[in-house]
Design a protein around this nucleic acid. Structure first.
Lengths: 219, 219
DNA sequence: TCTATATCGATATATTAATATCGATATAGA
DNA sequence: TCTATATCGATATTAATATATCGATATAGA
């Protein structure tokens, strides 16, 4: 590991988007103050986890009142936006890539997908949700010119490492990797691996357990 | 919670697909025996974690040798396949739904996506990767007739709860939920929530930290 | 056959995360 | 003004997870 001790735990970070969405919705609905109990109830969690997370995030509440919804929202927003920009390129405009390009809900999380890249000449030149799709060979030039530092990688397994290399060469420093491959990158590059199969594995194992219990119960 | 203590920890379950893919690849390549050190190296983790997981999975190795690749593969496969079947319906054939329908890589994980459902008449009747897309109203009838118990939910936020209700009515007992909504379901229904924004949040926070360190380093 | 060694797996420890307890405090209402 | 109470946040405890240590053992090679 490249060092750099974690300021807050990964579980807390994972919960940020969930908090964000709830707070935004509640503020919209006119709830200017909100308690940990209310948040926990809405999100199916324990109030104490909310309070611990918020303390960690630097959100300060008031006894008897709770938290200022807007302030909490802004703090979480700033934690997810504090870099100069979160402009990103998406590499690999297949089904998943298109889905990510079309997904509204990353924008308010600080991600600004400005273009897609692919090798498939059928798709190069098209626009998806207003974002132009360029040939992969254009990546270095455009990344450098636009100073884009973040890339989303959703190419097939076989192409992943080559694409990652190209991205790194182009100056990309953060890769959100959807290919089931452990990418080899320089130390300064941050990689976040996303493995859709993980969630599926959990569902299946849970179902197996639940079924086994069911059998025991009816025996 | 519905009770039912976990047999093995969630982190170990999450690592199963990763092990599975590596073992399949190595077996393919002719490596019939494999050590925890080798696996760890290939996956960027610690050997001791591999050994602990394998012990948990019930995979037994031999000193000086390691594990039988094929046996390990089969054990993990059986853990992810042991129900009667993992046939599933996909509800919401938008961009993400289409991506999931097209994704090869769930099949060998025990998931058999047999059909899609949507309300959009433009897409109903089409076929995606050989799977027919039906109108959502057909879900109860088909789920009951085919005894499908698993559903993948990738509809927009607003529609998620209604669709979940319909799925539960139709006899679905396991929902892989991609909508950023806490679904209200009966106790016996297992829900696995997938929040793509989580990974993004982690990437962004890591980048922020990495950048902050970078600034400190160059000062 | 015997010895050296790679590797597992059991036990112990450390780290991280979740949960519980409870005093402090800001507001609402008497 | 005073009191009751909801709620935070600090501290303590417990549980889960990751990591370390080391003895046991199966094989390779002398």
């Amino acid at each position: 590991m490249t060092g750099g001790k974690r300021i807050m735990g990964l579980p807390s970070i994972r919960r940020m988007p969930m908090y964000y969405r709830l707070l935004a919705r509640e503020l919209e609905a006119g709830r200017t103050q909100i308690s940990s109990a209310y948040i926990a109830e809405a999100l199916g969690m324990e109030p104490i986890v909310v309070r611990k997370d918020f303390t960690l995030f630097g959100i300060i509440g008031k006894p008897k009142i709770g938290y200022e919804t807007e302030e909490a929202l802004q703090v979480i927003d700033s934690l997810m936006n504090s870099r100069d920009s979160n402009e990103a390129f998406l590499v690999g405009v297949g089904n998943l890539g298109q889905a990510l390009l079309s997904y509204r809900g990353f924008e308010h999380m600080g991600l600004d997908l400005i273009a897609g890249f692919d090798v498939d000449s059928d798709i190069v030149g098209r626009r998806i949700q207003g974002r132009e799709i360029f040939a992969l060979v254009e990546l270095p030039r455009l990344a450098k010119r636009l100073h884009v530092k973040t890339g989303i990688l959703c190419v097939p397994e076989e192409a992943a490492q080559d694409c990652a290399d190209a991205m790194v060469d182009a100056g990309i420093e953060g890769i959100w990797n959807f290919a089931p491959v452990r990418l080899q990158v320089p130390d300064y590059v941050v990689v976040q691996n996303e493995d859709l199969a993980e969630g599926l594995a959990i569902l299946i194992v849970k179902l197996n357990q639940s079924k086994r219990e069911g059998i025991q119960r009816t025996n």
